[in-house]
Design a protein around this nucleic acid. Sequence first.
DNA 1: TCAGGGTGTCAACAGCGTTGACAACGCTGC
DNA 2: GCAGCGTTGTCAACGCTGTTGACACCCTGA
Lengths: 258, 258
Amino acid sequence: MASRTPLRGARNASEPAPRTELSRRRILDAAQALIEREGDRALTFRRLGAELGVDPTAAYRHFRNKDDLLLALGDRLLGEAIDAAVAETPGNSGWRERMRLAAHSIRNTLVRHPNLAQLISVRITQGEHEALGIEATLATLAQTGLPTREIVAIQRAFADTVLAWSSFSATFDALPAEAKARDTAAWVTTYRTLPAADFPHIHAASPYLDEFDDAFDIALDLMFDGIEARIAAHEAPKAREASDSSNASTPARSQETE
Amino acid sequence: MASRTPLRGARNASEPAPRTELSRRRILDAAQALIEREGDRALTFRRLGAELGVDPTAAYRHFRNKDDLLLALGDRLLGEAIDAAVAETPGNSGWRERMRLAAHSIRNTLVRHPNLAQLISVRITQGEHEALGIEATLATLAQTGLPTREIVAIQRAFADTVLAWSSFSATFDALPAEAKARDTAAWVTTYRTLPAADFPHIHAASPYLDEFDDAFDIALDLMFDGIEARIAAHEAPKAREASDSSNASTPARSQETE
DNA sequence: TCAGGGTGTCAACAGCGTTGACAACGCTGC
DNA sequence: GCAGCGTTGTCAACGCTGTTGACACCCTGA
């Protein structure tokens, strides 16, 4: 509707002839607006062309194919997520709180763009934003005093877990409302009524089954507790050589020094 | 090709008239075979019809639409994954090893069916297989001696984390080989060459960056360490009331008794 | 025997990603 | 100034997709 339809030789002399109407930037803006407004399913070349007032195939001059376009979109979104995480995290908090906030910030951003989330989460963009995010995480983890190699391992596990969970949450959140409600209610309806004889543990657990509607925080807390256990195990030999005799339940793993 | 093309009234009297050629069962078998053989992209109604020697739209008599068919396929696959996990886990091992094996078993099954994985992982099937899996996990966790409510929380976090990671791994594994290789190499090429002045922590970490190609085990170990820390914290008050004075680094959370 | 419901067939629709030929335009070297 | 060239937008078309409605067949139950 906003296009100057035929325009053949009928150029209006007052306009300075906008030769390059399109650009990767403009196309990405339009694509993002389209997704934001009508959902990820609406992102087609034909819809994109209409949004830009341009022929649907014009975008092929700037992106090799749809995957190329999606990847560029993902790059931009991942940058936004990491920037938000870095910006929202207060500088004076401990590593645990900082990482918790960063994890939630990234997940929130990805949940806002469900279909893109799974495409992005799995790719390594090699962009500047990503490097900044890794640098910030490593810096935060350096507070723990753990050896560098172990910190790198933890960073990888943490980052991938957050991305996996973000994509997971985004997919669930994008389910049709009906399916989502049915799945959530299943904990109450289905599992609470299973025969106690065949499922004794589920039966014993039934009073608590529907208490935990978002396990993300629990999973994060478990990982953080694991990190703290490693810190304790790492600091213990420094404080005193051998104090306790019971070593059966020390949570330290045996693979970190080789 | 395999269809008895026109057949009008020309029925062969020796055949007992296979009235009901199709069934949900047969269609699902064919769909699974198709995916197994040619990948998830090949699952279209037209291909499915050819596979069954039947008109493409015949499947619509048994499934409302493609999503309905995919969901049924997912239900079956999730059952397969949980069954495999239960079967592969030796009965005489401790909770940590049992849960590690179960996690890997489920992930392996889902990685074998990448496109279905993300559809399945997020849905609660409410089927028998799922209940058996939950029951088995709760039974395993009961070994830890933790209070039931905490065990339920851990089960939820563990199950969802495994599903999220499985879908994550499946999506990555399904990437075109070229993209996968490029992403994996990024740790060496991109991050190792970042300026040390701007990225001091990445620079310090660079010797270890490419050592961890699969962070799933690290993430699992972190969670398991967290569980062990909670076990230790739960057992400590029983053994001795107050022995140590340094309580600054105890990994116990404060939310489990209320 | 005959109505009815379930099942497979067929033609068609709208929409998708993608391609190739073509036309308009700006830039560069003479 | 202008010819040539590369870039960009246009247009028509291809082959594919999921899905629908009318139709024909056949088994079952009354």
